[in-house]
C-alpha cells in the first residue's frame, strides 16, 4: 500500500485529522518562537511520548522518517559549532528533529482518506477563485491511483527496450512514457466526462460538508 499510515486504535489514531494537523502547525510556529534549549528538548520528549507511548508506534517506523534528515542535522550542528556555538546549534537541531518526528507521528496515525478530506476542506476558500474542493480531492485520488500503474508502465517500456538491446539509456524510457501518459490522460478525461465530471454548472453546495470531524 502506498502510504506511511500504520493502522492502530490508540487515542492518537482516533483523534481527528484536522486536530492533529492543527497541533502540528501550532508546534511548528511555537518551536520557532522559543530559543531556550530546555523548552525545545521538553517538546521533543513530549512528541516522543505521544508517538511511542500514546500512539504505540514502533521505534523503527519513526526512525525511518528521521534517518533521511540525520546527516543534515549532524552537518547543521557542525556548522553551528563553527559559526555560532554549541547551544544555538543544539536548539536548531532539536527543533528540526522535534518537528520531523511530530510530522511522522501525524502521518503514521492518520488515514490517507482523512488527510485528503482535510486538504479538500483547506481548499474551500479557493472556491472564491473558481476552484471546486471536490475536484481537488478527485485529482489527488487519481494521482495516488496512477502512481503504481505508471511505475508498472515504465518498467514494461524498459523491458521492451532491453529486449531490443537498448539497455543502457534511461532517457529513452521517458519519451514513450510521457506520451503514453498523455494518451492515458485523454482517455481518462473522456471516461470522467462520460460520468458527468465535466466543467459545466456547479451544483449547489451540500449543507454540512465539514469532513474534519466534530468541532
Amino acid at each position: 500500500m502506498l502510504s506511511l499510515y500504520l493502522p492502530g486504535t490508540s487515542p492518537v489514531h482516533r483523534a481527528s485529522a484536522g486536530l492533529k494537523l492543527a497541533a502540528l502547525a501550532a508546534l511548528g510556529i511555537g518551536l520557532f518562537l522559543v530559543s531556550r534549549v530546555e523548552v525545545v528538548a521538553g517538546a521533543l520528549v513530549v512528541v516522543l511520548a505521544v508517538g511511542v507511548v500514546g500512539a504505540r508506534l514502533p521505534g523503527p517506523a519513526l526512525w525511518a522518517q528521521v534517518r533521511p534528515v540525520w546527516i543534515w542535522l549532524a552537518a547543521l550542528f557542525v556548522v553551528h559549532l563553527l559559526v555560532t556555538g554549541p547551544l544555538t546549534g543544539a536548539v536548531a537541531v532539536l527543533r528540526l528533529l522535534t518537528l520531523v518526528l511530530a510530522a511522522a507521528v501525524v502521518t503514521a496515525t492518520t488515514r490517507v482518506t482523512a488527510l485528503v478530506a482535510v486538504v479538500e476542506w483547506l481548499a474551500r476558500p479557493l472556491r472564491l477563485v473558481g476552484v471546486r474542493p471536490a475536484r481537488v480531492g478527485l485529482v489527488i485520488a487519481m494521482t495516488l491511483r496512477f502512481i503504481p500503474l505508471l511505475a508498472e508502465r515504465a518498467a514494461r517500456i524498459r523491458e521492451a527496450q532491453a529486449a531490443r538491446g537498448a539497455e543502457r539509456v534511461r532517457l529513452s524510457v521517458l519519451v514513450p512514457l510521457v506520451i503514453a501518459v498523455l494518451q492515458m490522460a485523454h482517455t481518462l478525461s473522456e471516461a470522467l466526462d462520460a460520468r458527468g465530471a465535466d466543467d459545466t454548472p456547479v451544483r449547489p453546495v451540500r449543507p454540512t460538508a465539514g469532513p474534519v470531524g466534530p468541532a
Partner: peptide, 13 residues
C-alpha cells in the same frame, strides 16, 4: 477534465 487528468498523471510521473 482533460486538464485535471494531465495534472493528476504528471504528478504521478
Amino acid at each position: 477534465t482533460r486538464d485535471l487528468a494531465y495534472v493528476a498523471l504528471f504528478a504521478a510521473i
